[in-house]
């Protein structure tokens, strides 16, 4: 099931070729159509050539075909680039020859062409200075980044480590005082108490869970429950 084709009005033109050149100059349109037709002709030609070729007798593996395609694509790319460069050079030569011929015929002071060329030269100068400025700025930025990056990473890390080692040293000094027996005894007792309390904490938690009681209703119980997760070694 197909819907009727919707025709477009490209750029407000009705139908095919415009008789009045609205936005596009007649000359430009003709040149564009010429390029189009050339391209389409090329496509048809290549299809015809492709159909004339015999298919190869042996069956190639898919991998081989892929590799071959890649190779051919690369060749095409290279050929295309070379062709485009040569075309460009040719166009430039043609353009400069035409310009030269034109300039010999006209009055150099009042022509539109001279004005255009002067304008183009001005713009070029402007572009070059802006580009130079932006390159210089980029260079400076890169230099700053190059300097900053190792500082940022290494220096800050090492500084922090230094600070931490200093603090640890202070702690170690204090720790050395701890080796007296009295403190050791106190600490042992403390440890035992802490362990017992931790076990009680966990057992109580599990008891509560198992009993399915609503412990929040009793404020004292609630207070106790909220303490159960406390890590006693920290106080």
């Amino acid at each position: 099931m197909e819907k009727q084709p919707t025709d477009s009005e490209g750029e407000g033109e009705e139908g095919g070729q415009p008789q009045e050149a609205n936005k596009e100059d007649h000359m430009t349109l003709l040149l564009r159509l010429r390029a189009q037709t050339k391209q389409q002709l090329l496509e048809y030609k290549s299809m015809v050539d492709a159909n004339e070729e015999k298919t190869p007798e042996q069956i190639m593996q898919e991998e081989q075909i892929k590799a071959k395609i890649e190779g051919l694509e690369n060749e095409v790319e290279e050929a295309k680039t070379a062709f485009e460069m040569k075309n460009l050079a040719l166009d430039r030569m043609q353009l400069s020859a035409a310009l030269k011929n034109n300039l010999e015929k006209i009055d150099t002071k009042t022509s539109l062409l001279m004005d255009d060329m002067k304008h183009v030269l001005e713009l070029n100068k402007l572009i070059m200075t802006s580009q130079q400025e932006s390159w210089d700025l980029e260079e400076k930025l890169l230099d700053i980044r190059k300097k900053r990056l190792p500082e940022l990473k290494q220096a800050s890390e090492s500084k922090l480590l230094e600070i931490q080692t200093e603090k640890n040293k202070q702690k170690d000094d204090l720790d050395n005082m701890e080796n007296s027996d009295k403190i050791k005894a106190i600490r042992q007792n403390l440890q035992r108490e802490i362990q017992i309390t931790t076990v009680i904490q966990n057992v109580f938690q599990n008891l509560l869970l198992g009993s399915k009681a609503n412990w929040a209703e009793n404020p004292a119980l609630k207070k106790t429950v909220l303490q159960l997760e406390k890590n006693l070694t920290m106080i």
């Binding site: 702690k171 204090l174 920290m234």
Partner: peptide, 17 residues
């Protein structure tokens, strides 16, 4: 919460400082 670095046992430095 508490402190960041947990220690196994509390040392004198923790108590004092």
């Amino acid at each position: 919460y508490g402190r960041e670095y947990g220690k196994k046992q509390m040392s004198l430095s923790d108590c004092l400082s």
